[in-house]
Amino acid sequence: MSRLMEDVHPGPSRRARWIIVGVIGLLFLVPIAAMIEFTLRKGLGGGYDFSRWAAVFGGGLGNEYKPIFTGLGNSLLLAVVTVVVMLVLLVPTMVLVRIRFPKLQRVLEFVCLIPITIPAIVLVVGLAPVYSVIARMFGSGVWTLAFAYGVIVLPYAFRSIQTNLVAVDVVTLSEAARSLGAGWLTILFRVVVPNIRRGLLAASFISVAVVLGEFTIAALLNRVNLQTALVVVNKADPFVAVIFALLALVFAFVLLIAIGRIGGTPSGGGRRGRRGRRPLPTPSEKAVA
């Protein structure tokens, strides 16, 4: 069977594949290479050296670079709070809907995918008045942005968790737990959560990546995060800004490689689990995938 499949395979030949992947891949590496080349330039005289990288890693950055570190700190804090908001609010709801209110499945999915339809720039128009109220209630601490970020990570987090939730068949698991006398909290924390921890981890990582890359909402609500700080510092010293942009890029890349390894995203190991364990995908899952 597998031999036959290979014989009639409609895909490209090995050589054609590597030519396409190679050409497009190389084109996409050009801007990254240009960024690296840019950071190594030695000023107007020409030539290259590592002095700027040494300055960044050797702690030789003066006060004018403080915004970057403030922004980085803020972004990391926001990433953590956003993940907490997402885990605390979204996960129990998804589990509850899956187990108890299957009829609400489509509604939940629709709601979670809305942020794709509403651009962040539109959301900001309405968030500005909301945040002026929040500032009066909780102060203008940067962490409050995490509530808005929780909304923009919804589609990604929902997708990662849903894939996992469907693949392990939590409905049967929870029925089994309940017939053994478990309560709802026990089911949630001791049965469902351990079974979907891959999905939860993937959802957390993708949320971190989205939060670290977020610019629109922070910029227009006048908060400092990594991206807005990069824009500010870029005006004074584009070289250091590009170094930090590269570092953030590498960090996000490593994070997403980790997601792929853990599985749980539709493009990662989750697919394997889906094929292996479950005979029929549900319509809702397909709409998400």
Partner: peptide
């Protein structure tokens, strides 16, 4: 992983990349 990064993380970094 690379598609995920470039599709979602772009933004400001892309502007830098293309200026460079």
């Amino acid at each position: 992983a690379a598609s995920g990064v470039l599709a979602q993380f772009g933004g400001v970094m892309l502007a830098f990349a293309f200026v460079a």
